[in-house]
Amino acid sequence: MAKKSYRQAINEALAQEMRRDPTVIVMGEDNAGGLGAPGEDDAWGGVLGVTKGLMPEFGRERVLDTPISESSFIGAAAGAAATGLRPVAELMFVDFMGVCFDQIFNQAGKFRYMFGGKAVTPLVVRTMYGAGFRAASQHSQCLYPIFTHVPGLKVVLPSSPYEAKGLLIQAIRDDDPVIFLEHKVLYDDEEEVPDEPYTIPFGEANLTREGKDVTIVALGRMVKFANQVADGLETDGISCTVLDPRTTSPLDADSILESVEETGRLVVVDEASPRCNMATDISALVAEQAFGALKAPIRMVAPPHTPVPFAPELEDLYIPSPEKIGAAVREVMEHGA
């Protein structure tokens, strides 16, 4: 099987779904690029090249470049989704949600409920998130807890190329609005990805490591760190389960609870700001529903409650690291031996 990058996997998912279903369109700032400019067409293919090559194959009618005008085109994507298309709109950086959030959470996310179950809004908003790019406070946030908070939205955090392709195809075929968050630091990661289209169902956590001592729940890029930590601790005789929820909405509470029932210890790793993030949410879930199984206090590994810093030295301190995750696991292992 061919190895593909996270970027290629996403591009392939888009191209295959556009070939399969003529109602699938993509739109966003510079998704092709160079429109109306004197130089090359398809100049960018998205700011980091994820949509490159789609416009030459599918034409400007299905690969729509937009003005820098998120509230209008994200809203247009919502309206188009409610009226017969399957738009995949790219919000370049999730940090820009501030200028189009109404269209996502008050419009697309609520149509179905407000209209008594009669609306179907198969919208996908693809957006880039996460720190580690030296992109500073307005281009580095996670923010997925905010989308997760909104009933009516589904929220997807692919942690690897295989996951990205299957989850994006699922998102496009899904009849509900989906926020699909791509970690910008993962774009060049590679792994084996089938050439054929495939779907990964929402709401089922991926068990990436199976162990008996500690349950590590990690999201997005943090899954990679958690796997590294689990592999490293294996040689020290600490056996970790790693669960990647894949989707924060719906959340696979059952898999998390069942795993904690087995291990009795929980570490949650979340790159999102620490207050009201997925780590607090999952910790509350376990404290409420699996308290009796816990042998140790729950540990949350998250960044500090600050904006994402610019200076590389500070940003590196900010992001949850494998070292911090490893330390948290060792700490919970001191209990209930």
Binding site: Y162, G166, E196, P197, Y198, T199, I200, L207, E210
Partner: peptide, 16 residues
């Protein structure tokens, strides 16, 4: 094993 289940699921997820 976990991997055996995962391999079967990866196959079953393919279109068709």
């Amino acid at each position: 094993s976990r991997d055996m289940v995962e391999d079967v699921l990866k196959y079953k997820r393919l279109d068709g």
